[in-house]
């Protein structure tokens, strides 16, 4: 089981809110840490990876089970850490 540093419950909210919540959670995390997001809007399967790609984070896994989607993200995992994170 991989170590997860922060968990985010984004169930029952619709895109783009899960993306915004993930973005805000990551803003307070360090490179290399992991965030796990649990969501129910299937839109997150596209939107969270897209947001991660453009902001330099790596999606480690997307698991879908019983209408719940669990996404694990490695912060700055693409090694393109932006210079001006907020």
């Amino acid at each position: 089981m991989v170590r997860v540093d922060k968990e985010l419950d984004a169930r029952r909210i619709l895109c783009p809110l899960p993306v915004i919540r993930a973005q805000d959670a990551i803003a307070g995390m360090q490179a290399g840490e992991r965030l796990r997001v649990v969501a129910t809007d299937p839109g997150v399967k596209n939107d969270i990876p897209a947001w991660c790609r453009i902001n330099g984070h790596r999606v480690e896994s997307i698991i879908e089970e019983n209408d719940e989607i669990t996404i694990t993200i490695e912060v700055d995992g693409l090694g393109t850490a932006p210079s001006s994170q907020h």
Partner: peptide, 25 residues
């Protein structure tokens, strides 16, 4: 946004994307 797509079953199969994210990419 993709809301109504996320909600309505018949639309669930269609690819959804957030256009702002797509444009940024």
């Amino acid at each position: 946004e993709g809301h109504t797509h996320a909600i309505r079953k018949k639309d669930r199969k269609k690819p959804k994307r957030n256009n702002a994210l797509w444009v940024a990419e």
